[in-house]
Design a protein around this nucleic acid. Structure first.
Length: 843
RNA sequence: GCCGGGAUGGUGGAAUUGGUAGACACAAGGGACUUAAAAUCCCUCGAUUAUUGCAAUCGUGCGGGUUCAAAUCCCGCUCCCGGUACCA
C-alpha cells in the first residue's frame, strides 16, 4: 500500500501504470488517467476527412455551459458515446463532436450577481465542463469543438439572416408579442408554456412591439410532409407532437355580410366543415374581436363580459373544465347562400389567435356548438343525415360525414362532395374560398437581451432596415459590457449603437436586439461537419460526407422547440444554396433517441429540491467507467432512470469481478484430456452472447439488456475451470470477446483488461467480435415438454432428432410419462429448439 | 376531451415479437473465510399448499375471447405517466 502511494506521487503516468507491474486490484482512477492519455496520443477519437470507410455521424445535444455537468448530461453523453464507440469498432468513420450552446440568459444573471462580464463567466464554465467531459472518457473529436458565442460561429448566422431578408423570409413586424417582465424580453409562441414563461414560470403579458420574424409558416407544409420520412427513425410521440404543433386544417373561408347597424362590411370565418354551411344558426366571435368591441360600446353588460373573458386563464386544466359562456351582440350577419339573418354572439371559447377569431356555429353537427345552443336556446338545424339510419338531433350533435338535407340545391350530396360544391359556390359568388389553415406561427427571433448574437441590421432614417453587408460581418458583440438587469447594456454603448448607413452613409443606428438562442442551436449540427470553414457557413463537400446526422440523442423536452427549428433551419440552408438535398438531405436528423429523465426518489433531480447527485462525487469514488456502466444498465435509454446508490456499487462490483477473471490465466495447465462438453458449452455461451449484444446495438439500443448479457458471460467464465490448453484457449477467447464488447460501455477498463490479456490493439479500436456459427451448433439440445400446454418436464435429444424421436424420448421420461397414462395423444407440436407440446384426451 | 406510452416479484427491469414468465442486477435472509470488520465466495429468494423426498395449484392491472400454446393477438374496462389545440 505504501509503495503504491509513493508511486502515485512520483513519476509520469506511463511509469506508474505499466501492465508489467501487474496491479492485483482494480483502481479506476489510475486506469482511467492512463488510457485517456494514450487515446489522446493515438488520436483515436478524431473523425477522418480522408477515409474510404463509411461515415457515421452520432450527435448528442450540446450543453449550455451552466458550470457543472448534471446526471442528465452524463446519461445523454454516455448513450452517445456508446453508439459512437460501437460504430467505430464496426469499422465506420465516426463523427462524434461536442460544443457549447453558449449564449443565453443565465450568463447575464451571473454577470449581474458577480459583477463580471458574461463572456468571462461563460468561458470559465466551458473550461470546467470540458474537463468533466474529458474525465468521463467521452470519445469526442475535440478538434471540432465550437462555442456559439464566438464570432466565428455567429457570423454565419448573421450572414444567413441577411440572405433571409433578401428573400423576404425574415421580416420586421409590429405585433402583439409575449413579454416576460423578469426576463425583460419577448418570447416565441413555443416558449410560452401554459401562459407562463418556459424559463422562469412568470405569467406572460401581451405587449405591442416591433420585432423580427422568420417565415417558418412558408415551410409549414414541408415540415409536416417530411415528418413521414422520419417515421421509424424518430419516436412516434415526437412526430405526433410536431404534427399537432403545425396543426394543419383543411377547409374554407366564408364571408358573412354584416348589417348596416353592425358597421357593414363582412365577418370572415374559417371552417373545416363547409358542407354544414346551410345549418348555421348563429355566429360566434372572440372577446377580442373588433365586432365585439363595437357591440360593447353601448352595452355595459357586454363590456363587462368581454372584460371577464380577457382575464380567463389559458391553463389547460382550467380550459378543460371551463364553462362555455356567451352573450348576444345584438348584431346580425347575412348567410351568403340562404340570405337568412343569423345573430352574432360573443363566446369565450372562440380564440382571437386562431383563424379569423370568428366562427360559424352549426349546433346540429358540432358538439360544442350544440351545447352552447342548448344552453342559450338557439335553434338547431340538421343539414347532414346519416347514410343509414335516423338521428335524434335534439339529443346530440351528429358530427360524422353523411348526406346533405335541408340544404336546397346541395341536397343529396355526400359530405365529401358537398365540401367541394359549396366551396365552389362561395368562390364563384365572391363569398369565400378554399383555405388551408395552420396553427404554426412565424418564428419571433428578436430578443431584448445583451448576451446573444447581434441582429445584423442598421436602421437608417431614409433607407429603413438595411442588412449589414458580408464584408462587415460579423457584427461582433462587445464582450466587455456589464448587464444591470434592466435594458440591454447595448442601448448605452454608443460605439456599437451609432454607425453610418451602409447604403447612403448618413448617421444611422444599429439594431440593438439579439437573436433568440434557438437560432444558434438550429444549425450547429451542420457546422460540425466543417467547423473551421472560413469561406461559408458550411462546406458542401463536408455536408456530403457527414450529413445528415445518423443518430441524434437528447432530451424529449426539445420535441417541439429545438427539433422543429432545426428541421426548419436545415431546409433554409438547403434553399439558400449551401448544400443540395442530395448533399445534406432534406432532414437534419434521420434517427432520434429521446432519453428519459434521471430521477431521485421518483422526482426529477433539481437543485431546488436538493435531490441531486453530483457526477464528480461518483467519479471520485468509483471512477468514470462505473458511472457510465450504471447509467446504461439501470434502465432502457428512453425510460426514466431512478438513481440508486447501491446499484452503482453493484456496477462497480461487476467490474471488479471481471478484473479477477484475469487471475485464471496464470493457473498452470497441462496437456490433459479436457472436458469437451464444458469447453463446447463455454464457446456456445461466448458466441450466443456476441449475437445477443450485437442485436441489442442494431435494434433499438437496449443497452441494459446488452450489459446483462455481458454479466451473464462473465458469470459463465467465472464458473469455468480451464483444465488443459483447449480449455484455456476457450477461456481466453471468452475473456477477449467480453473485453471487446465491454469497450463501448467502459472503455478505460476494457483497454486495461485488453492490455493485460495481451491483445494486439487497444480494445477501443479493436474489431467488434464476430459470431462463429459453428460454435452455436449444439450436438444435443434440451427441449421443454408440455402436456396440454403445461410444462411437465424436459428431454435432451440429438439436434437432428425428428418429431417421432422427440416423442419417444418424452414418453420414456417418467416425469412426463405419468401425465400420459390412460391418455391418447391426439396432436404433437414440435417447435424446433424450444419445446414439444403433446395434446391428449382420455383413451 | 384528444394523441402517445405504460401496468410483470420487495425494487430496477428481462422474455429471441405467439413457444419453458421472472434473464441480469439491487435489496433481504442464511452460510463460509476473519480475533473482528471490510472485501470476497456459496446458498435461498412470485404466491399458496404439501414435504423425509418427489411435487401440485395459482400467477404478468381487471373481465371475456381466439389458440395445441397468450405478458405478447382480439373485444370490453380500470388506473398511471407524458404531451396537448375549446383549433372552428
Amino acid at each position: 500500500m505504501l509503495a503504491r502511494e509513493l508511486d502515485m506521487r512520483s513519476g509520469s503516468v506511463s511509469e506508474q501504470f505499466s501492465a508489467e507491474q501487474g496491479e492485483a486490484e482494480y483502481h479506476a482512477a489510475d486506469v482511467e488517467a492512463k488510457w485517456q492519455q494514450r487515446w489522446q496520443v493515438a488520436g483515436v477519437d478524431a473523425a477522418s476527412e480522408d477515409s474510404d470507410r463509411e461515415s457515421y455521424y452520432c450527435l448528442v445535444m450540446f450543453p449550455y455551459p451552466s458550470g457543472n455537468l448534471h446526471m442528465g448530461h452524463v446519461r445523454n453523453y454516455c448513450l452517445g458515446d456508446v453508439v459512437a464507440r460501437y460504430k467505430r469498432m464496426r469499422g465506420f468513420n465516426v463523427l462524434h463532436p461536442i460544443g457549447w450552446d453558449a449564449f443565453g440568459l443565465p450568463a447575464e444573471n451571473a454577470a449581474i450577481k458577480h459583477q463580471r462580464p458574461p463572456a468571462e463567466w461563460t468561458y470559465a464554465n466551458i473550461d470546467q465542463m470540458r474537463a468533466q467531459l474529458k474525465r468521463l472518457g467521452f470519445s469526442y473529436d475535440w478538434s471540432r469543438e465550437i462555442a456559439t458565442c464566438h464570432p466565428d460561429y455567429y457570423r454565419w448566422e448573421q450572414w444567413m439572416f441577411t440572405r433571409l431578408m433578401e428573400r423576404g423570409l425574415a421580416y420586421q413586424s409590429d405585433a402583439e408579442v409575449n413579454w416576460c417582465e423578469p426576463c425583460h424580453t419577448v418570447l416565441a409562441n413555443e416558449q410560452v408554456v401554459d401562459g407562463v414563461c418556459w424559463r422562469c414560470d412568470t405569467p406572460v403579458v401581451r405587449k405591442n412591439l416591433k420585432q423580427w420574424f422568420i417565415r417558418i409558416t412558408d415551410y409549414a407544409e414541408e415540415l409536416l410532409a417530411d415528418l413521414d420520412q422520419l417515421v421509424g427513425g424518430w419516436p412516434e410521440k415526437v412526430i405526433g407532437m410536431q404534427r399537432n404543433w403545425i396543426g394543419k386544417s383543411t377547409g374554407a373561408t366564408v364571408a358573412f355580410a354584416l348589417e348596416e347597424r353592425a358597421g357593414g362590411g363582412q365577418l370572415e370565418i374559417f371552417t373545416t366543415r363547409p358542407d354544414t354551411l346551410m345549418g348555421v344558426t348563429y355566429m360566434a366571435v372572440a372577446a377580442g374581436h373588433p365586432l365585439a368591441a363595437k357591440a360593447a360600446e353601448n352595452n355595459p353588460e357586454l363590456a363587462a363580459f368581454i372584460e371577464a373573458c380577457s382575464k380567463i386563464s389559458t391553463k389547460e386544466a382550467d380550459v378543460e373544465t371551463m364553462e362555455k359562456r356567451g352573450m348576444a351582440t345584438g348584431f346580425f350577419a347575412i348567410h351568403p347562400i340562404s340570405g337568412e339573418r343569423v345573430p352574432v354572439w360573443v363566446a369565450n371559447f372562440v380564440l382571437m389567435g386562431y383563424g379569423t377569431g370568428a366562427v360559424m356555429s352549426v349546433p346540429a353537427h358540432d358538439q360544442r356548438d350544440f351545447e352552447f345552443a342548448k344552453k342559450y336556446d338557439l335553434p338547431i338545424k340538421q343539414v347532414i343525415a346519416p347514410v343509414d339510419g335516423a338521428w335524434d338531433i335534439e339529443a346530440a350533435a351528429f358530427t360524422e360525414a353523411g348526406l346533405l338535407i335541408n340544404s336546397g340545391e346541395f341536397d343529396g350530396l355526400s359530405s365529401h362532395d358537398a365540401k367541394a360544391a359549396i366551396t365552389d359556390w362561395l368562390k364563384a359568388h365572391g363569398a369565400g374560398d378554399a383555405r388551408v389553415q395552420y396553427r404554426l406561427r412565424d418564428w419571433l427571433v428578436s430578443r431584448q437581451r445583451y448576451w446573444g448574437a447581434p441582429i445584423p441590421v442598421i436602421h437608417c432614417p431614409d433607407c429603413g432596415a438595411v442588412p449589414v453587408s458580408d464584408e462587415q460581418l460579423p457584427v461582433a458583440l462587445p464582450t466587455d459590457l456589464q448587464p444591470t438587469g434592466g435594458a440591454s447594456p447595448l442601448v448605452d454603448c454608443d460605439a456599437f449603437r451609432y454607425v453610418d448607413c451602409p447604403q447612403c452613409g448618413q448617421p444611422a443606428e444599429r439594431e440593438l436586439d439579439t437573436f433568440d438562442t434557438f437560432m444558434e442551436s438550429s444549425w450547429y449540427m451542420n457546422r460540425y461537419t466543417s467547423p473551421r470553414h472560413g469561406e461559408a457557413m458550411v462546406d458542401a463537400a463536408a455536408m456530403r460526407r457527414w450529413a445528415p446526422v445518423d443518430q441524434y440523442i437528447g432530451g424529449v423536452e426539445h420535441a417541439v422547440l429545438h427539433l422543429l427549428y432545426a428541421r426548419f433551419y436545415h431546409k433554409l440552408m438547403r434553399d439558400v444554396g449551401l448544400f443540395t438535398s442530395e448533399e445534406g438531405g432534406d432532414e437534419p436528423f434521420t434517427h432520434l433517441l429521446t432519453q428519459g429523465m434521471v430521477l431521485m426518489d421518483g422526482a426529477k433531480m433539481s437543485k431546488s429540491k436538493g435531490n441531486t447527485v453530483d457526477p464528480n462525487a461518483i467519479i471520485a469514488r468509483f471512477g468514470a467507467d462505473t458511472a457510465r456502466l450504471f447509467t446504461l444498465f439501470a434502465a432502457p435509454p428512453e425510460k426514466e432512470l431512478e438513481w440508486n446508490d447501491s446499484a452503482v456499487e453493484g456496477a462497480h462490483r461487476f467490474l471488479k469481478r471481471v478484473w479477477r477473471l484475469l487471475d485464471k490465466l496464470d493457473a498452470p495447465v497441462a496437456e490433459v484430456a479436457e472436458d469437451a462438453r464444458a469447453v463446447k458449452a463455454l464457446r456456445l455461451a461466448i458466441h450466443s452472447t456476441i449475437e445477443k449484444v450485437t442485436h441489442a446495438f442494431e435494434h433499438g439500443f437496449a443497452f441494459n439488456v446488452a450489459i446483462a448479457g455481458l454479466m451473464e458471460l462473465s458469470n459463465q467464465l467465472q464458473a469455468f475451470a480451464p483444465q488443459g490448453t483447449a480449455g484455456l484457449a476457450a477461456y481466453r477467447e471468452g475473456l477477449e470477446a467480453l473485453t471487446r464488447m465491454l469497450a463501448p460501455f467502459v472503455p478505460h477498463f476494457a483497454c486495461e483488461i485488453g492490455e493485460r490479456l495481451g491483445m494486439e490493439k487497444m480494445a477501443v479500436v479493436a474489431d467488434w467480435p464476430t459470431v462463429d456459427a459453428a460454435a452455436l451448433v449444439q450436438d444435443e439440445i434440451t427441449l421443454a415438454v408440455q402436456v396440454q400446454g403445461k410444462r411437465r418436464g424436459e428431454i435432451t435429444i440429438s439436434k437432428d432428432a425428428d418429431q417421432d424421436a422427440a416423442l419417444a424420448a418424452a414418453q420414456a421420461e417418467p416425469a412426463i410419462a405419468k401425465w400420459l397414462e390412460g391418455m391418447q395423444i391426439v396432436k404433437v407440436i414440435l417447435v424446433p429448439g424450444r419445446l414439444l407440446n403433446l395434446v391428449v384426451k382420455p383413451a
